[in-house]
Design a protein around this nucleic acid. Structure first.
Lengths: 189, 189
DNA sequence: CAGCGTAGGTACCGATCGGTAACATCGCCA
DNA sequence: TGGCGATGTTACCGATCGGTACCTACGCTG
């Protein structure tokens, strides 16, 4: 019937559907039935390709992290040998994205807040990848000659997480629109 | 049977139980059955005192906001006519609390992230109260003589939200431990 | 002491959740 | 052409969800 399968496997369709739904509605807010319907496949196809909903969520988180890494690498490529410019490029991009009306922040941060149980596998995976994001900021600050690198790193990480959350919590344009300006304040101390 | 009613009404016991469970496990992560069991009452008592689980959640959010207001007022009382000192007192307190192992952040922020649907009544109530928290910071900054009050307000709000989230996301002591230091960086520009 | 209103308890409802068993059917390749 | 792996179809499971109907038993007031 719906046998066209235009070159896209069921597993991939499910992954794309889950990415969209998990990001926009949260992991707990989406049922597996909705995922497969949105993908145009059926439930057994999901469980043939992924071990569980949590397993699919972990794949989604990994994909999300890699999209973040891509942003980091773009900032590095646009400002070679200029860690300060790389940091500012990233926060300027955040300010722009977080000012859009339907902004939904960071899939990793959202997942951590959605799963308060620190032992839950989804939460653990999200926290692991989130730490890697913080590590990137720390690696940039380490290349800078500043008085208190630890405090600056902390400030930039807190700023990043603040933008992720405030972009959703306040009516746009909220405080997140000033992310670039605030990053400059912190860097110019 | 358990008719003693030691001066505490069923409604109040349920409110206390819900506050503890909602804060520690999230609103969606707690069922009404667990709430009433933890309160030592039964389900019909919950629905006699509150119109629904969402209604009870709204009461929980209101209570949480008032506990935040209390912190604000304490900071104002401790540093009268010193808005800078009031802000720093608040962020120093946050840094201390957010460094504790089982820190769970802000009930309002958590609720906003838990309910991605902007039209959901719980989400709307949480967002309304969260805006009031940001307004307090704005009111303090307005008393300061700074170059860019809008950017400073945004920076402090983003810092506050960042601490709420990072306190849960990173292994303690994470970046949130530097909240006070970062607030000083922003204020001393 | 009679009677009534209120709060408590038991048991249940329909809906939805994540996950699975069993079988039909397709496209592809030897 | 025969067979195999991937997918679709249908029906179902047990658990849990938020919410409620119904009856009991207390405590206050006449």
């Amino acid at each position: 019937m719906k046998r066209p399968t235009p070159g896209i496997s069921a597993a991939e369709r499910i992954r794309n559907s889950a990415r969209e739904l998990f990001y926009n509605n949260g992991i707990r807010g989406v049922g597996v039935e909705e995922i497969v319907q949105n993908a145009g496949v059926t439930k057994p196809s999901l469980y043939r390709a992924y071990e569980s909903k949590d397993g699919l969520a972990a794949v989604y988180l990994d994909e999300f992290y890699h999209s973040c890494r891509t942003r980091f690498e773009e900032a590095e490529a646009d400002f070679p040998d200029d860690p300060r410019g790389q940091i500012l490029a990233y926060f300027d991009g955040m300010a722009e994205r977080a000012s859009r009306p339907a902004y939904r922040g960071c899939g990793l941060t959202n997942a951590i807040l959605e799963f308060p149980d620190r032992d839950h596998p989804v939460r653990r995976e999200a926290a692991r990848l989130k730490q890697a994001m913080a590590d990137w900021i720390a690696s940039r600050v380490r290349l800078l000659d500043v008085r208190d690198p630890e405090a600056l790193t902390a400030g930039l990480v807190l700023l990043m997480e603040g933008v992720f959350v405030a972009g959703q919590a306040f009516a746009p344009p909220g405080p997140s629109a000033h992310a670039g300006t605030v990053a400059r304040l912190l860097l110019d101390v």
